[in-house]
Design a protein around this nucleic acid. Sequence first.
DNA 1: CGCCACGCAGAGAGCGCTCCCAAGCACTCG
DNA 2: CGAGTGCTTGGGAGCGCTCTCTGCGTGGCG
Lengths: 346, 346
Amino acid sequence: MPDQSPGSRPTLEAVAARAGVSRATASRVVNGGAGVRQPLVDKVLRAVEELGYVPNHAARTLVTRRTGAVAVIIAEPEIRIFSDPFFSQQIRGISKELTAHDTQLVLLLLEGPGDFGRIARYLAGGHVDGALAFSLHIDDPLPGIIRRSGTPTVYGGRPSWTSAPSDQGVPYVDADNRGGARAAVQYLRDLGRARIAHIAGPADQTSSTDRLDGYRDVLLDADPALIAEGEFTVESGARAMRELLDRRPDLDAVFAANDLMASGALRVLRERGVSVPDEVALVGFDDMVSVAEDTDPPLTTIRQDVEGQGRLMARLLLRGLDKDSEEARAPASVITPTTLVRRASA
Amino acid sequence: MPDQSPGSRPTLEAVAARAGVSRATASRVVNGGAGVRQPLVDKVLRAVEELGYVPNHAARTLVTRRTGAVAVIIAEPEIRIFSDPFFSQQIRGISKELTAHDTQLVLLLLEGPGDFGRIARYLAGGHVDGALAFSLHIDDPLPGIIRRSGTPTVYGGRPSWTSAPSDQGVPYVDADNRGGARAAVQYLRDLGRARIAHIAGPADQTSSTDRLDGYRDVLLDADPALIAEGEFTVESGARAMRELLDRRPDLDAVFAANDLMASGALRVLRERGVSVPDEVALVGFDDMVSVAEDTDPPLTTIRQDVEGQGRLMARLLLRGLDKDSEEARAPASVITPTTLVRRASA
DNA sequence: CGCCACGCAGAGAGCGCTCCCAAGCACTCG
DNA sequence: CGAGTGCTTGGGAGCGCTCTCTGCGTGGCG
């Protein structure tokens, strides 16, 4: 086959010459062939085949002003991205969707707090058509940078400056954290548990606060002593559980804001000889792969479709990008449903 | 008047005009300013600043034939990328190194077995200057595709068709799997264990076979019944452990080819009331974050510097790319050392 | 004081592609 | 039978940037 002729690759010009047509016609064929008569289409296609022609992306971008690439920006401190399959799954979903639309995925990981300048420059440089951004903490400088760069962006997780799920300003995709939390606590209460504690996530993330809100929705008058804060890690979950146990030894249920913390809590419970779910019922959140199912006992938890969220983000973005009417690019946010998964811990 | 009409970004032409120099001079300044007198440099820089000029990447690529981007190709079935922080860490290292060299990271996840064509087209399209590829199983079509595309590539993990670590053909970075395994088994033997079992990984990956080889290096005459195969997952580790226990109830140590399988094995051991490390000593591999330390008891394991490997891969690739002497681009492979981390399981 | 050499700036030619516009052409309709 | 209509096709002008090559100014040196 026409392997790489060492050095330069064939150009459209070459294809056109070989097919005996003009460059314009060759271009039309390569881009779908609309409005070109069949015999010519075939000829061009054959030439493409024979020459092993592949369009030069840079040249195309230069004139069309579309890069066919989307940035995925992850501005998360080292820790979480390691222990959390969350991003991997999210990215998998994004990748699926982008691939289906022939769009490339440029990964932008923030390297330290001084790295925002690079991101800003990159976005401003028009290297990508749009962006997908994650992990916004309160006061995160990223949204400002993104807005200023004018890059169409869909956020993963409700950005902190949006007030309500119905906020129309910035498009984002998020699980129904509040509703899920509500379901979890409701479930515990239906089980007859009366002193339901909550291990919350970091207060500067909306997923934490939304879940906490859900907890409070059900337990309007919850004792503050029943609430402890962790950082979404196993260790912090263990610590929070100890606090809780010390403050309210009489608690009979725990709703942890994620499975990692739930598993930490579980360990502490076991250490202290508290039986789960008999003495204390435990519910997590996320249905995290290779965590929720692998604890002992397996975790009852709230499942969210992380990969689906990734797909959705990409879809929303691409839709906004496709809109030829530049104005109509205001995709609405989407809240994805959660479901309670019953296992043995509650 | 030399303002940006909202929509189109300023070009070099505009900068040059504003600075009162030619486009060529402006270009020189933007690219380092070598051979341009100071006053002019300043003028151009000021113009850049005032106009908010950012070079158009596509135009630059078109003429320089360098994209300033590198592809990271992950051809792994869904499962592992989710449960395994391996890739995340590796990518973190890669990202660090690439960022330091102002190079972008394009993530190429293989979506299903039919997706190789896309990868091939992408590489052939010259979208990237080089590639970093992972997870090659035996008979993986990827290497062929990559080779044919002529894309300079560094592999992560020893590709199966290389025979020895000293193989000079394809540059790769890998941990000293064999040496690490040797150390693990040696350690168990020094502990006085006589019937050391091994839970191996999938036979079609070199990391598995290399670790198995290391095991055999120490236990030259190991009973085949002491070896079971898993798939690097918790569940498969548990299954393998059951097999092993059924076949050789007298075993007094287990070396698992990764921590995930070790943790699965641990669960089974606990279920069967076998005490670890007293009755059976257990050693894992990888020192996987939020696994090795979080099991009960914590895992003694072989640590490898995954992030460092990622950095190394990127560095090797970039070095090969930088070499202006096109011929000299044959970076050697690197084997990174492993260390034994003593915890409670052995 | 004049000539040569060298350093620095500008002009211009593309890189490969898309897309506008006009030319060509077969048909149809009046 | 001529003009009109609608498709195809080709020509050509750039997209924004780099880079070679030329030209000019200046300084050094004979």
